[in-house]
């Protein structure tokens, strides 16, 4: 190597200059990369991966809000990890079975149970999307993995009416004309009642939970994470499709009216699986399936 011909050495220098140049281009503008990339028809430019996690079980338990107090909560419907109860901790989740596709997602997700005419109804389709949206594209490109063991609560279980703080939305699958509402909607016969809920995506970078279970996370402000919560993580969007339609007067949640919809998330994605999806789907803005590959 030391005896490399001058031409060889020059090539090597050129290679480094080229590499540096490419790196600076990366730094300079993500748009450049996008244009330079060969147009592959099958790649959809949406920053997303997902987990489909059907209903697992019901319990009046909540390991985030009422840890160690079985029966203290209103009724919850659990998705994902099959063993979640009032005592569940991260180690329990990591050893749990799961209803999720992909099977590597042993996270626990739960919501207040929906009742129609006082009979519990479980969603037929349960999808948890992890999205790179709601913040500027340069922040999406810098998304950090959700830390293992992170707990997030979204929505307001104590809401006394739909108001400006209501984050959850109700709508109808295959009946878009009904529109989205903060309370239950009347879905045409043959369609399904659906619930959307976006979780906060800005983390304080320090705590996996907080005494009020909220203040370690924040929603973005003006498409950016606030200085108090500087770490952008994937936005979790919970989408539930319930096999019910018609008069909303028949419906209630275990926590009250439709506007009390809330979701709890206890992250137990293996770190490598989470990181791979953030690197391969969220940062480069590629729509991935449950396997975390371009779909």
């Amino acid at each position: 190597m030391e005896r490399a011909a001058p031409l060889h050495a020059l090539r090597r220098r050129l290679r480094f200059v080229t590499l540096l140049g490419a790196l600076l281009a990366l730094l300079g503008g993500y748009a450049v990369i996008e244009r330079a990339e060969p147009a592959e028809a099958r790649i959809v430019r949406v920053a997303e991966f997902l987990a489909d996690c059907p209903y697992s079980h019901r319990l009046p338990d909540d390991p985030i809000i009422y840890p160690g107090l079985p029966g203290a909560s209103h009724m919850h419907s659990f998705f994902g990890a099959t063993t979640t109860n009032a005592y569940t901790n991260l180690a329990d989740l990591l050893n749990s079975n799961t209803t999720c596709n992909p099977r590597v997602d042993v996270s626990s997700y739960w919501v207040p149970t929906l009742y129609a005419d006082n009979v519990p109804v479980e969603p037929a389709i349960v999808t948890f999307y992890y999205l790179g949206e709601g913040v500027r594209s340069d922040i999406v490109a810098n998304t950090q993995p959700l830390p293992l063991g992170l707990r997030i609560v979204a929505g307001n279980a104590r809401a006394t009416g739909p108001d400006s703080t209501t984050i959850s939305r109700w709508s109808c699958l295959h009946a878009g004309h009904v529109g989205a509402s903060k309370d239950f909607v009347n879905c045409p016969s043959g369609t399904m009642l659906e619930s959307y809920l976006d979780f906060p995506q800005c983390w304080n970078g320090r705590d996996l939970d907080s005494p009020d279970h909220k203040s370690h996370m924040a929603y973005p402000v003006n498409q950016a994470c606030p200085p108090t919560h500087p770490v952008a993580v994937p936005k979790l969007r919970q989408v539930l499709r319930y096999p019910v339609s018609g008069d909303p007067a028949r419906f209630r949640l275990a926590s009250g009216g439709g506007f009390t919809m809330h979701g709890d998330f206890f992250n137990a994605w293996p770190e490598a699986e989470m990181l791979r999806r953030v690197q391969d789907c969220i940062r480069p803005v590629i729509k991935c399936g449950a396997d975390g590959r371009s779909s």
Partner: peptide, 20 residues
């Protein structure tokens, strides 16, 4: 992996799992 923005870093490690 496109990385356009200044890094958002945090120094402290996360608190251990368990109740707050």
């Amino acid at each position: 992996t496109p990385t356009g923005a200044a890094p958002v870093t945090t120094g402290a490690p996360p608190t251990p799992a368990g109740t707050p």
